[in-house]
Amino acid sequence: MLELPAIPIHLADLEQAGTVTNFLSIIIAAALANNVVLVQFLGVSSLFAYSDRLQSAIEVALLSFFVLFVAALINLLLFRFLLAPLNLEYLKLLCFVSISSGISGLSIHWIKQRFPLSLRRQKLAFYLIGGNSAVIGVALINTVSGLGIVESAAYSLGAALGFALLLIAFAALRQRLDTTEVPTPFRGAAIHLVSAGIIAMCFLGFAGPV
């Protein structure tokens, strides 16, 4: 069984909570060693769906960085101060979904005014960011991980960084992958999956020897 949900590695030393090093280690652990996409498997389908062009992958990565971080923060505050004290935990999924899709809807409204061309190219992708399982998954992990509020915010920032970083890096990798000579059955989806597996091995290496 995988360790579900995987909690950042350096969290055992919570007595030094509040120091700058602890925040940095949480952010780095969440971005690399516990990468949202390849180690915890949240939002994997967006990794393959949006990475066909580097330009569009950068646009989607920036928007999902924003939506993931802001939605995770608001969901965290909502859960800690409203849902948990009132024993309304069973409503958490509905609240998380409506808040994250509301935030993505508002940011799409802003994009429509500023960058209408990129919205037209990426319409479905932008609309689907609010329902991305990385966005909801980080909010759900924050409810069960047992961290303090500031540490959870640092974890959300690290998770958003890791998601955006991996999306851009994978799009850049795919540009080279699509022009190489690959055996016929592996062309397309199969070689992308295998190379993502090799990247996942590298990310597991950040966590140190098992």
């Binding site: 069984m1 995988l2 390849l38 180690v39 498997f41 016929t184 059955p185 592996f186 062309r187 397309g188 989806a189 199969a190 070689i191 992308h192 999956l193 295998v194 993502a196 597996g197 090799i198 996942a200 091995m201 597991l204």
Partner: peptide
């Protein structure tokens, strides 16, 4: 049981399906 193996095995299944 690790995460990379899931991706690689799914890639092999997709390749077998293509073949």
């Amino acid at each position: 049981n690790l995460q990379p193996a899931a991706l690689i095995l799914l890639g092999l299944i997709v390749a077998a399906k293509n073949m």
